[in-house]
């Protein structure tokens, strides 16, 4: 474990060195996601100029939901971006074989191989949203709340990573898993808004099947002192479950790869 931590920090340092070499690109990459995110935010802003409450939520409360999701999402961009392109960039090119002849875990190696700076845009926007919204909403960041926020964001991030891991395994069969990952990933858009806005079917899906709700809506409820029962505490358990399922599937995919080589 310490070995992996030090290896990861080495990979990260080298990656940052490369990114810094292309400073302009680094800046554009980080800012571009900011602009992309802003489009959605402007929509909420425009609408909330016209109406006081959306499904019983104020503008600031909506921003909190939005910000929590952006923070969680930034983690998958920053630390697990290669799950998107494992098929395209590694399996198809044969580069994946390199991981298999090195004395490290191939999944670790895959993830460590790329830290994606575009996630910084999400991180920044999420940070700004959560801090300004909470200030205006009068949320006090005492230790329990702060701890809850950290755990919630981490769980949210791991939910994103777990779902991407599950879908990326398809790359061992279809070479390029981006279409599969994209469809599941895009369902996170539902969680930009309070889940209570949707009908029961959608709520069920976003809670139990593609549980992005735990990355935004449920923790927001807790922070705002609203009551949705036990669900506000389930994030970590859901995240761990998804990761376990994802890892099992990953191993299954690896076994398939070992017998077919493609």
């Amino acid at each position: 474990m310490p070995r992996y931590v030090s290896l990861y920090s080495l990979f990260l340092r080298q990656r940052l060195k490369i990114l810094m070499e292309y400073r302009v690109n680094f800046f554009i990459g980080a800012v571009s996601t900011l602009i992309e995110q802003t489009a959605g935010l402007l929509t909420v802003w425009v609408v909330m100029q016209r109406i006081p409450l959306l499904n019983g939520w104020t503008y600031e409360e909506l921003l909190l939901v939005y910000g929590l999701l952006a923070l969680s999402k930034s983690l998958t961009y920053l630390f697990a971006d290669n799950l998107w392109t494992v098929g395209r960039e590694y399996i198809r090119t044969g580069g994946f074989d390199r991981f298999l002849v090195r004395p490290v875990d191939p999944l670790f190696h895959l993830l460590a191989d790329r830290f994606d700076h575009q996630g910084l845009g999400h991180l920044i926007i999420g940070g700004i949203l959560v801090s300004t919204a909470s200030a205006r909403l009068g949320i006090t960041w005492d230790l329990p709340h702060l701890l809850y926020l950290v755990v919630a964001v981490l769980s949210g991030g791991l939910i994103f990573i777990g779902l991407n891991l599950i879908t990326c395994v398809s790359a061992f069969w279809i070479m390029d898993s981006v279409p599969v990952t994209r469809v599941v990933f895009d369902m996170n858009e539902f969680a930009k808004y309070p889940l209570s806005m949707y009908n029961r079917g959608v709520q069920f899906v976003l809670t139990w099947l593609v549980p992005y709700g735990f990355a935004s809506f449920y923790p927001a409820n807790y922070l705002l002192g609203r009551d949705v029962g036990v669900l506000v505490w389930l994030g970590p358990a859901v995240a761990v479950t998804l990761l376990l399922i994802g890892y099992r599937l990953w191993l299954f995919g690896l076994r398939h790869y070992a017998s077919t080589g493609s």
């Binding site: 290896l7 080298q14 060195k17 490369i18 070499e21 090195r102």
Partner: peptide, 17 residues
């Protein structure tokens, strides 16, 4: 690594092993 100087790349490989 495509963008890294050779010593840095070799250093990473050495660390991996």
């Amino acid at each position: 690594w495509w963008d890294l100087a050779l010593t840095e790349s070799l250093g990473m490989v050495a660390r991996i092993y």
